[in-house]
Amino acid sequence: MKPAPFAFVRPRSLEEALEVLGAHPDAKVLAGGQSLVPLLTMRLAAPAMLVDINAVPDLDRISCDDDGVRIGALVRHAALLRDEDAARTQPLLRLALSHVAHPTIRNRGTTVGSIVHADAAAEMPAVLALLGGSVEVASVRGRRTIEAADLFAGPLESTLAHDEIAVSAWFPALRPGERVGFAEIARRHGDYAMCGVAALVGPERTRVAYLSVEEVPTIVDLTGVAPDDVGEAALAHLDPQPDIHATAAYRSQLVRVLTRRVLEQAA
């Protein structure tokens, strides 16, 4: 469990990081390392170079305004979880983050890293998708904003180009009249969930996000569905997959139960 050889650079500015990344097609960004390092040690990934962005200044900021919460690429899960302004502006962040891994991992792992890592079992990609947030990315070619709806391409696959660094993510604020809910069931406390559900209930629309059910975070619109029918209505849009911890039927059951529970929470 030792990684294959790689070169390591630790740029002191975003520009430098982007240049190195642009010049090395087989380089990978290292943020909190909580997903990448295990992949390296198990030799499931063997990039020729790691571009460690931890020394890039100003990426660890959390800023909140009436519109939403913006977090820099180096904001750790733990920092965002603690942040009172963020919790007030968009309560779903704290609700969901408390389910992300364990405290030690939250202390290093970054929320932006989790989003661009695009694990369908991760909480924060589903949250970003549900809220309709976005990610701002930069490369030597310039900057662009990727809407959540366009971000998740497949399992562990986001639409960032190889030479792009996600510099921040933006989560829209909770608007008046809106309520949120979050619930998940994991085999052990802090594990990736077998099924997780986040809900955003507004005066006009009821939207629900599912993690660990399909290969990407999935959003289902349940506007106007009667409370007793929400589970089945959601399943009509979903194709729950089996794995070694849950059969497809069991996962469907969790969809039913958790959909009802989060919508009650958000009622």
Binding site: R187, M194, H245, A246, A249, Y250, Q253
Partner: peptide, 11 residues
């Protein structure tokens, strides 16, 4: 026995 196993048994 896991929750998924128990659910299967119930079914």
């Amino acid at each position: 026995i896991s929750p998924s196993d128990l659910f299967t048994l119930r079914e």
